[in-house]
Each structure stands twice: as C-alpha cells, then as structure tokens.
C-alpha cells in the first residue's frame, strides 16, 4: 500500500512537472518555482517565527504577579490567533484591493475594512466565550483562582 502510494504519487507529481514544463516557456516555469520557493521561505522564516514571537508576547503580557499566566485570556488569545490569523492572511487580496478598478463596479464591492473589524470583533467575543467553557481548554481550572503556574521553559 505504502509503496503503491509513493509510486503513484511520484508519477502524478512527475506529470505535473511535465505539464508545467510543457505549458509555457522556461521563464514562466522559473517564476512558478520562485513563487513556490518564496512562499515556503515566507512561512518558515517569517510567519512561523512571528507566531512563536506572538506566543512569547502573550505570556509576557498576560503574566500574573505570582509568575503564572492569566489562563482564560491566554486561551482566548490562542483561539483568536488560530481563527483570525489565517482568515486575515487569506483576505490579503481583498483587504489590499490590489485589483480595484473603477470600471469593474461589481468587483471588490464591499467595505472590507469594516467587514474585517466586525469579523474580528465576533471572533474575539467567541474566543472569550469559548475560553469560559471547557470546549478548548481544561474544563476543571488548574490550581486555585484564574491563573495557573506554567512551568518555565526547560533550557
């Protein structure tokens, strides 16, 4: 089964590469490769570290005097990042209105900034509500009160 998947996958992949080489000149193939490569680098070297930094920032901002983290707010923050982060990224083409054209009155014909703000508000409220339930975090609070001690990173 595994060998079959790998061989079939390799053949399909090869067909895609052949299509790519076949449909256009070399310059176009190059720009497809550059687009894919830049996308990988943007994720691995920019987006992923930025999310790590956000996680670190959340711990700093939500620290309690006793060294714990405001757990419910931390939970809500994670839900907000998971939902609003990807949705905002995928809306870049409409938020940036890059293809706006006065001649095309039915393209990009919404107020995207207001729409995004409304959506963000709805996501924040939903995240806070979710954090109050046990649906996304431990139902039985850990330790006394609203905060819990989080072990310091090991090294």
């Amino acid at each position: 089964m595994r060998a079959l998947l790998v061989v079939a996958g390799g053949a399909v992949l090869g067909y895609g590469m052949w299509l790519l080489a076949d449909f256009s000149e070399l310059g176009q193939v190059g720009s497809v490769a550059v687009w894919s490569g830049v996308a990988i680098v943007l994720h691995d070297a920019v987006l992923a570290p930025a999310v790590l930094a956000l996680g670190w920032l959340a711990r700093v901002l939500l620290r309690t005097p006793d060294g714990g983290v405001r757990r419910r707010l931390h939970t809500a923050a994670v839900v907000v990042v998971v939902v609003l982060g990807p949705v905002t990224l995928l809306a870049i083409p409409v938020l940036g209105r890059f293809a706006a054209d006065p001649d095309k009155s039915t393209l990009l014909n919404r107020d995207y900034s207001t729409g995004w703000l409304l959506l963000a508000g709805a996501v924040v409220v939903s995240a806070l509500l979710l954090a109050l339930t046990g649906l996304v975090s431990e139902a039985s609070g850990r330790g006394p009160g609203r905060s819990a001690r989080v072990p310091r990173p090991g090294r």
């Binding site: 790998v6 996958g9 992949l13 067909y15 790519l20 497809v32």
Partner: peptide, 14 residues
C-alpha cells in the same frame, strides 16, 4: 492546473 498535479502527487507520496 500543473501545480495541482504536483501538489496531489506530493501529497500521495507524503
């Protein structure tokens, strides 16, 4: 279209 085949092929390998 071409990259769809590349994506699905690599997905099967994965």
């Amino acid at each position: 279209h071409a990259m769809a085949w590349v994506a699905i092929g690599s997905l099967l390998v994965h």
